[in-house]
Design a binder for these strands. Sequence first.
DNA 1: CTGAAAGCGCTTACAG
DNA 2: CTGAAAGCGCTTACAG
Lengths: 319, 319
Amino acid sequence: MATIRDIAKKLGLSVSTVSRALNDNQRISVRTRRQVKEIAEDMGYQPNYNARNLTNQEANSVGVIFPVNNRVVDNIFYVGLLRGINEQLNARNYVLSVAVGESTEQVLDNVKSMITRAQIKRFILLYSHENDPVIELLQAEPVAFVTIGKPADGQRWLYVDNDNVEAGADGVDYLMKRLHVDNPVFAESTNNWPYEIDRKAGYLREMKLAHKTPVIFPVPDDDEAVVNRFIEENPQMDGVVAIDDFTGLKVYHRFKLLHPDREIEVVGYNNSLPNELTDQHFHSVDLNPNEMGRSAVKLLFQTEKPKRQHIIVSHTIPK
Amino acid sequence: MATIRDIAKKLGLSVSTVSRALNDNQRISVRTRRQVKEIAEDMGYQPNYNARNLTNQEANSVGVIFPVNNRVVDNIFYVGLLRGINEQLNARNYVLSVAVGESTEQVLDNVKSMITRAQIKRFILLYSHENDPVIELLQAEPVAFVTIGKPADGQRWLYVDNDNVEAGADGVDYLMKRLHVDNPVFAESTNNWPYEIDRKAGYLREMKLAHKTPVIFPVPDDDEAVVNRFIEENPQMDGVVAIDDFTGLKVYHRFKLLHPDREIEVVGYNNSLPNELTDQHFHSVDLNPNEMGRSAVKLLFQTEKPKRQHIIVSHTIPK
DNA sequence: CTGAAAGCGCTTACAG
DNA sequence: CTGAAAGCGCTTACAG
């Protein structure tokens, strides 16, 4: 591998000058800079990241941290984020390092070692939980981080999120205005995540505006009878805004089993179902995880003042 | 941060000795080694990976490469692999770096830069495709790699896989012997991946052994009418071995819509569905992605001779 | 505008 | 069993 030393020798320059030229240092004449870069290109020069990181006391690497507990289906979303993140990192000649583990201790150890041994100074968390030991660690260290999802009230750090109130509102509007649904219900999980609360708020707002009676249905994980009963007790229902695609599909299928001949329209979130499982009455709001990933990197590397504290990524209503 | 220099000073030793002691070099007396490690611990010494990597001309990092095109639902499996991989990497004080992109060019650039700039010498591919430019690159470079999934005939490299013939056989046996299904059909995709071919072979073998007539059903992505027709034309069918959970669920739901009162048992693969979407008639063979990830790392770091060329990870039949 | 030199924190061949 | 020294490939404060 060619080094800056080789380039210097070939051009009769010092390594200092070559290093500066490659880094576009203004103090080096434009002519020399061009020359150096040309020769570097010719010689197939590739910078050695380990050397540079050692000198800089900082790795050209971003640590991407997975949550400890999650539903397997959330993995679909995480990989979307990874793609967006890595696209932007590569453009900056940065590397994506992953921290993931079975327990909080494992993840903490992983992150600690990233900070102290690998000298990673920037992190992206694929989640945003309250009282998370990993977040507390990052706050105590001289590192920057961004979460996917906004912090709870009273907390403050960089984050990327959707506008979930609008996403909830858009979901129910889509049903009412585009698909002419009269009585959309809201199917939530029993988790009460921030995004659930927000989407529900959006649903409630639009229902009020439309002078309709909102109906909230907490869908249990494992009890079909409850779903069946809810469907029977709400014969007026002809549409569902579901907190995610899986919850939506569950309700949809129970409904079709009970009423094979009645139509119902469902809107979920995340675009996480394969074609095989859906049909023209099933719709999904795309939260654009790739764009969220890209935005997280942009927040982490922003230089303009004043610094942005967050980026809200727009969701996409189905066509 | 404490360095080996600080430790050396405190103990009146040279940095050479401290370095050797920390690396458990036999040439250093046991007493000195113990002493050094103790003080290192006390001082909260953490090795600087960048310095070590620079000296070693090799990063303590494994590149994990994602396929360019995949179904979103495959992401579920990838994150399972990541977890297993990272567990083993952390135990070896290694870091997990991700290469993922929208196009082959992006991924190639990412991998090239990992090799030449980051000096990464070990890779894991989360897939195993024929004529893959990334695999060809890795073969041409002085690096080691392992694929998830066996190579096509005529190719040879390190890999981790399930025994998919047995997984197919076990799926249909589970239906026939444990659930007393009489006429299980095999629902495949139209992709003809190696694992599909193998699972189908397992299905065919067991059907032959049981003196039953096999029925293969290629499930199209987007055509419900075809599924309905198949169900109607096969009134004898009372069980399905599906190439994956999503295909299985699709057939299951179409079946229940057509015949709400008839029972059918379905076995899929991958354990990728949330509770909300299944019930007691839906089963899934777990391919143990975590264990596959762990095994990939073991293959990559093995030192005993003769070296193993592959590891077959056992699948788990539902209880 | 350019260079000589120091330094980042390790490992290891050579010497004793 | 231990040490002095060189070297890995960069960046940058200091000097001119």
